[in-house]
Design a protein around this nucleic acid. Structure first.
Length: 261
DNA sequence: GCGACAG
DNA sequence: ATCTTGTCGC
């Protein structure tokens, strides 16, 4: 994929804020009605001292379970990258810490997924421009933020049953939902990133939750990220197939010795 | 002024 | 985010 927008990343917090305020105007909120068949997910894990980050981008082809209508991952193509982290973690500026590591991975993908799931927030952000919104705008694709905790907004606790949800309201606006993705488990904070709205975001994320608290695709990239952090060995581009063949255009991007450092 | 604060 | 054993609940 090729970014539609380009801007510096090694910036001060003040400049980062200006970029967020400027780019937030490009966020488009609308129903995402197209059936999701190709889904992407990203995540980054770190070493204890924050010196290195392990970024992962997964492209997943999807099938729908006949019985429950939930999404099942049919095939996956995984891209990973180990990088030194420069930008510190500053609440509401996570994009500037993680996106620089993810950019090289997106470059390797030559197709646009129907939606991108992100471990972080979308518009449920002080300036309505969290990590998911930022990535969605950069690549002009639908994106959804699936945070494990709250950054901003007020809400009431959703019922304990999976599928229960309550509104996440920030400054009088509904910026997302608090979604119970698994019975009796802490809820997820789902907010649209780009080319999606709150309702569609909640519907899609719930369909991605099969047996665990986290949406399957995010849980997958999260596991891979932590796995390679421990091992820190083998090729940085791997392929995993579970059945059938890849949709046209998806087979190409796999190469060996692709991305390291 | 003080507490809160995605990963 | 990461460091960590056992432990309580579904």
């Amino acid at each position: 994929m090729e970014a539609v927008i380009s801007h510096p990343w090694n910036v001060t917090i003040q400049k980062a804020k200006e970029i967020q305020l400027s780019l937030s105007k490009r966020v488009l909120l609308k129903p995402l009605l197209k059936k999701v068949l190709l889904l992407a997910a990203v995540d980054v894990s770190y070493t204890r001292w924050d010196k290195q980050g392990y970024a992962v981008l997964g492209i997943f082809s999807i099938r729908y379970d006949n019985s429950d209508g939930l999404i099942r991952i049919k095939e996956e193509v995984i891209y990973t990258r180990k990088d030194r982290v420069n930008f510190p973690y500053v609440p509401s500026y996570l994009s500037f810490r993680e996106i620089p590591m993810l950019l090289p991975l997106f470059e390797k993908v030559d197709i646009k997924p129907d939606v991108l799931l992100v471990d972080g927030v979308g518009i449920a952000h002080p300036r309505r421009f969290g990590l998911a919104a930022h990535l969605g705008v950069l690549y002009d694709i639908p994106s959804i933020g699936c945070a494990k905790s709250r950054l901003v907004g007020m809400y009431e606790e959703p019922a304990v049953k999976k599928g229960s949800l309550t509104k996440l309201v920030f400054k009088g606006e509904e910026v997302g939902v608090v979604l119970r993705s698994k019975d009796n488990c802490k809820p997820l904070f789902v907010s649209p990133g780009n080319k999606c709205n709150v309702g569609s975001a909640a519907r899609i994320v719930l369909k991605c939750c099969s047996k665990y608290r986290l949406a399957d695709p995010i849980r997958r990239v999260d596991a891979i990220s932590k796995e390679i952090r421990k091992g820190d060995n083998r090729s940085s581009v791997s392929r995993h197939l579970t059945a059938g063949s890849l949709p046209c255009g998806m087979a190409k991007p796999i190469q060996k010795g692709g991305s390291k450092q």
